[in-house]
Amino acid sequence: MSFNWFRYSSPQTFYPLAGRLAPFFWIAAVALTIAGLYIGFFVAPTDFQQGDSYRIIFIHVPAAWMSMFIYVVMAGWAAAGLIFNTRLSSMMANALAPTGALMTAIALWTGALWGRPTWGTWWVWDARLTSELILLFLYVGFMALHASIDDPRRADKAAAILAIVGVVNVPIIYFSVKWWNTLHQGSSVSITRAPSMASTMLLGMLVMVFAFWAYSIATALTRVRGIILERERHAAWVAQLGTE
């Protein structure tokens, strides 16, 4: 019982831990991106219907998955901050929001560039595209709400409620292609059946998914270190850090 699980939930212990972990994730992100791009452009074959335009999938799908996943994790941290009143939880939520917003923007941008040559349009107001756009608004709303309240603790609470409310949008995005008629096609990869992709294409996509994971973790860890310093400025340990 010597290991205390709550040890790392204090900003003081998490700050150096994040500093030690971040480099590994930066390296992993770069290495996996290089591997993923190599497979995506040089190993994976041309698609039978879409030609080479389908190669956008190697960033579109990882970004879209991360946009949803980061939101759930962000809302989880925000909720933990609201319930247990732990300082680090809210800081983690704040560190994840910009990366999540970026992933959503990338998913929308790459989707537009993919939709134009294949569907014949940059944008349609179908359920999948509309709900993903709502996700971007939720991220932006979360950051704006937090920034608009001066007292950080009150800002945490208000933003957390918005984040928790917004979670309902995530299953809507995911299942929109099943629940409604959409222009967007169904999922190529699902847990209930075999993926409908050639194996090298699938491999390239999965490697890029892990690259985006590593990237998101690395940016969130680096960003949370800055946030910790800003918000723990009055703490003795930060003062000590400042004299080093």
Binding site: P45, D47, F48, Y54, L183, G186, S196, A198
Partner: peptide, 18 residues
């Protein structure tokens, strides 16, 4: 007034498709 293509979620090389 507008025609859009709706493609499926299958991706494979042309040889596999044939």
């Amino acid at each position: 007034s507008q025609v859009l293509a709706k493609h499926d979620e299958n991706y494979m090389p042309p040889e596999a498709a044939s």
